[in-house]
Write a protein that binds this DNA or RNA. Structure first.
Length: 271
DNA sequence: CCGGCCACCTGCGGGC
DNA sequence: TGCCCGCAGGTGGCCG
């Protein structure tokens, strides 16, 4: 489910409820996530106060005086603040209960997600240490992308989805940004001009920012209570639109597997 | 360092 | 109905 906009939207949704609150209890129903949830989590967090919550890449970082807890939503994770007594689903793996009555609930059917203790220097942990720049930051720009692409022979789509190059560009927005920038997803990363990397960088920033503004509703399973599909999905130009006409030239959108992931593009507009 | 491939896991929709 | 197949938002790790 979550690309970066969903993670950012989740952050904005939960933060006001949890800042300055102290942990009353930790409930772990299923510890077999991508890595096992550590057994000491309960005693470590008990009575600790949430000093801040922030996002780095697609990780949500919960800062306490004694260290930082990271939660990653993987492919199918969701994190919600609920009031007491919402029924427990079979995939509700972890709850953090707070003294103000708030309840942070982590649900993740596929269990590719992560609830992991990073200690006092989270940025040096193995999960965060090697990550590239944030896509919406100023140090992510065309110059940077172009310089990192030198001599790389792999497909540009794989290149921009590599978290060591830039974080937060998932499978949906990689296809979208490349369409915006008129770049073919299979083109070698090292065979793209400086100027076109400017365009690609702007496109990445724009598709992510627009999705965040739309409330991070990228997903097929983000359906509102009255059954209306997620708002932003209707704005996707190519992702999931195989066989329908390109909005720019009416050529039929094609799907092709690149780096074991489905990629969508217009063979007329993108080169 | 780089590219290619695999693994982890559950659910859903389509075809037969 | 029910089974089997392919597909799905991520990313660390391994191998050559």
């Amino acid at each position: 489910m979550p690309e970066l906009p969903e993670v950012e939207t989740t952050l904005r949704g939960i933060r006001p409820h949890l800042i300055d609150q102290s942990v009353k209890a930790v409930v772990v129903r299923q510890r077999q996530l991508r890595v096992p949830v550590s057994r000491g989590l309960k005693s470590k967090l008990k009575d600790q106060v949430v000093r801040d919550i922030e996002r780095r890449a697609k990780y949500l970082l919960f800062h306490f005086d004694c260290g930082t807890l990271a939660i990653h939503l993987g492919m199918s994770g969701r994190l919600r603040v609920i009031s007491a007594s919402v029924p427990i689903d079979k995939h509700d793996h972890v709850d953090l209960l707070f003294n103000n009555g708030a309840q942070l609930r982590f649900r993740d059917p596929r269990r590719f997600g992560l609830v992991v203790w990073l200690g006092k220097r989270p940025l040096t942990s193995r999960w965060l240490a090697h990550l590239g720049p944030e896509p919406l930051s100023d140090n992510f720009n065309g110059d940077y992308l172009y310089s990192r692409a030198a001599n790389r022979r792999g497909a540009v789509k794989n290149f921009i989805m590599d978290g060591r190059i830039v974080v937060g560009v998932g499978n949906i927005y990689a296809s979208e940004a490349l369409h915006h920038a008129h770049i073919h997803p299979a083109r070698g990363a090292g065979r793209i001009s400086r100027h076109r990397y400017d365009d690609l960088c702007v496109a990445i920033k724009r598709v992510l920012a627009r999705a965040i503004d739309a409330g991070g509703t990228t997903l097929r399973d983000y359906v509102s209570a009255d059954g209306v599909p997620g708002f932003f999905e209707q704005q996707l130009a190519v992702y999931g639109r195989e066989g329908s006409p390109c909005g720019l030239c009416s050529t039929l959108i094609r799907r092709r597997v690149i780096g074991q992931r489905s990629s969508f593009f217009c063979s007329q507009c993108q080169h």
